[in-house]
Design a protein around this nucleic acid. Structure first.
Lengths: 215, 215
DNA sequence: CAAGTATTCTAACGCATGTTAGGAAATAAC
DNA sequence: GTTATTTCCTAACATGCGTTAGAATACTTG
């Protein structure tokens, strides 16, 4: 199991970093933003350099290729969510599955917007990436999926979840629904907490007012 | 209001078409497939031509630019879902909002997989497209969104939906969750109908077995 | 301030892309 | 079977891409 609690990229603790690491981070942020907006191939290294306040050639002092930049954007993005969700679950009563699930959703959504472009880039672009890059990140992705599957499986066994639900499709649906929110929800203007609570309700109880409607 | 009942692109009624229209359609299918897989910029016209069994230059006999190809892929994709959902709703009892919502979900999901690459390309790539192309399709997108908003709003006023739900985020969440299924569900191997019923249940009632869990 | 190191810039390279023009091949019309 | 017309191919173009090497600048250390 890979260490999941790596630090997020959201911080502004730049002061503590060396100059080299600071511009490295600036490049990554610029890249994440543009990758997310335009896609991998459509984003030029000249664009990235411009957004980071330098010239294209200079990028190669910090990274050895465009692929490597994408590599790191993907990695830190997912690792941030993974770590946050793991931590959030860890702080819950181990037997309170409802609390754990809600904490997981809350952490996932929160990180989705804190890490911003990094996670969004990961989600949006993964399927379109060159195979080489994609393969490198399969492992981490599977680990994160497994974390959720475990969480949901336990909840199902305890009777918290409807018995007719299959775990894997459910997980896909849940994570997919959450992730999609980065496409339309403006985390800068609106409260991420409110969004998280909405998601918890919707995923948990659905949209109908009464339960006996059909089934 | 734009006419929504345009014919889908899923058919194999090629025999009835002129030769020109047949290769035109072949090009569109090839383009949709590759666009979906690799993204817009990453897809070469030489790739598209190859997939369609011809050479790159020949594409320009049928289309005047790469943008125009994308244009039509987007259009026919969304128009297919739009039309199908409109028809499905129209066949329901006008006052049975539950039936209408379920029919809409069913039609949307079904079309998602019937139209395959066309819709997926639309969903996946829209946000990354060159502004010029995107603007052209905003109208159609808004119309489709309005259709859903109307549907949900009516249902809310009748008391079918929980009163604390806001329409727009709900619609985003619902459509987003459905659309995401094209990323992970294999409609070739598995039944699309089963997926649709699952979605109906999940969106309607959520994943918890009992309702009084929190709230 | 000088020497050395860390960082960025300039300028160019080979390559792949979207697009075009004119000729070749296929198809249709008489 | 010979024209017309439709469809496709070949070959090239200008442009922008990722990448590289070496010169130029900024920073650190004595």
């Amino acid at each position: 199991m890979v260490k999941a609690n790596a630090r997020a990229v959201t911080d502004e603790e730049n002061s503590a970093l060396k100059k080299s690491d600071r511009t490295r981070l600036a490049i990554l942020k610029a890249a994440a933003k543009l990758f997310k907006e335009r896609g991998y191939t459509a984003t030029t290294l000249r664009d990235v350099a411009d957004e980071a306040g330098m010239k294209a050639g200079s990028l190669y002092y910090h990274f050895s290729s465009k692929d490597e930049i994408m590599d790191e954007v993907l990695d830190s993005g997912l690792r941030g969510v993974y770590g946050a969700v793991t931590d959030a679950i860890g702080e819950c009563d181990a037997n309170n599955h409802l609390e754990k699930i809600e904490a997981a959703i809350r952490a996932h959504v929160k990180m989705l917007f804190l890490q911003g472009d990094f996670v969004s880039a990961n989600i949006r672009l993964y399927s379109q990436l060159p195979e080489e890059i994609r393969l490198k990140h399969q492992k981490l992705r599977h680990e994160y999926a497994d974390l959720w599957d475990q969480l949901l499986q336990e909840a199902k066994e305890v009777g918290l979840l409807r018995a007719d639900l299959e775990i894997v499709p459910l997980r896909q649906f849940v994570i997919g629904g959450l992730n999609w929110s980065t496409e339309w929800y403006d985390g800068e203007k609106n409260s991420v907490e409110i969004l998280a609570e909405r998601c918890i309700k919707l995923i948990g109880h659905g949209m109908y007012a009464s339960r006996e409607i059909d089934d």
